[in-house]
Simulated scan of single mutants.
Amino acid sequence: MPNSDYELLIFDWDGTLVDSIDRIVAAIRHAAAGCDLPRLDEVPIKGIIGLAIQEAIVTLYPQLTGTQTLTEFQRLYADHYLSLEATPSLAYPGVAKTLQTLHQQGYRMAVATGKTRRGLDRVAACHGWSALFETTRCADETASKPHPRMLLEILEQCQVAPERAIMIGDSAFDLQMAHNAGMGAVAVSYGAQPVQVLQQYPHCLMIDRFEHLLPWLNHRP
């Protein structure tokens, strides 16, 4: 058994495990251009990473709410992102080795992501990580972050109490979702949102490199 207060580790995907941020920004801008919408600075685009895609789009372009253009934007985004992901986004340094080590040490692991089910299953298989995660939840099959539903569903399926699980993510949505579910959270500083934003939300730890998660977990009293 792990030498830790936690038995279940729940990870965000984009910006936490894989460096896909620039591709998401590029796909949003491509879709906006295709819909004759203004090109946005990367800061607000990075600020919506982690949300379900429709919620992300209407956050950036509120005028699209309830319109056919929203559907077209989503299609253009998905097609362009898929073309960019023909070669999957690289894992951040230390992620692959650390995930394997955590698995070997007996930690149970899961994913809670704003990706679609089809997108997550494809990229998890490409990285060879599918078998590492006991369960996963995606934004197109449950409530979008920061609503706690996807975490509560994972906890129920795994039969783990909130205090025995922790969320690891790179966005305010991840940290607030964990808080809403009664869980602790670890923030990673290298993803989509800057440290000064993350510091405004509840978290137990902030790490600059993914592998720093290991010693913190394994030296918990």
Rank of each mutant, 00 (worst) to 15 (best):
I53R: 14
R164K: 13
D140N: 04
I57N: 00
I53A: 08
S89R: 01
M109G: 15
E72R: 09
D12C: 12
A26G: 04
A139E: 12
C158G: 03
D41K: 08
G182V: 03
V160R: 11
R117P: 14
A26F: 14
S20D: 09
L64D: 05
G50R: 00
S83D: 13
I154H: 07
S189N: 15
F73I: 01
D22I: 07
P93R: 10
I53N: 08
H30R: 06
K115P: 01
P62K: 08
V18K: 07
W216T: 04
E7Y: 09
L205M: 08
I24S: 02
I48Q: 04
Y107S: 04
Y61P: 03
Q63K: 14
H203D: 03
A32I: 08
E211A: 15
E7P: 03
E153L: 14
F210G: 06
H219W: 13
L9W: 00
Q196H: 09
T69D: 13
Y77A: 02
E156A: 09
T16V: 08
T136L: 11
M177E: 10
N180I: 04
I207W: 01
R149M: 07
H127Y: 10
K46D: 02
P162E: 02
A78N: 15
H219K: 10
A91K: 10
K115G: 02
D22Q: 10
P215N: 14
T116C: 14
Q159H: 06
I48N: 04
M1G: 05
T87Q: 10
M206V: 08
S171E: 14
L8E: 01
H203T: 04
E85Y: 13
T69N: 15
S89Y: 01
G94I: 04
R118S: 12
A26W: 11
A124I: 06
I24A: 03
N3D: 11
A112E: 00
Q200P: 07
R220K: 13
A185S: 09
S144N: 07
E72Q: 15
P2V: 01
A91V: 15
K115Y: 02
R39K: 11
L9D: 03
A187W: 00
M206P: 07
H219V: 05
M177H: 06
D19A: 12
I53T: 06
G191P: 07
W216N: 04
L132R: 05
M167A: 08
M109I: 09
H212C: 11
P194K: 01
P2L: 02
Y201P: 04
A78M: 11
A187M: 10
F210H: 00
T65N: 09
M150V: 08
A181D: 03
D170H: 03
R39I: 14
D121W: 12
H147C: 09
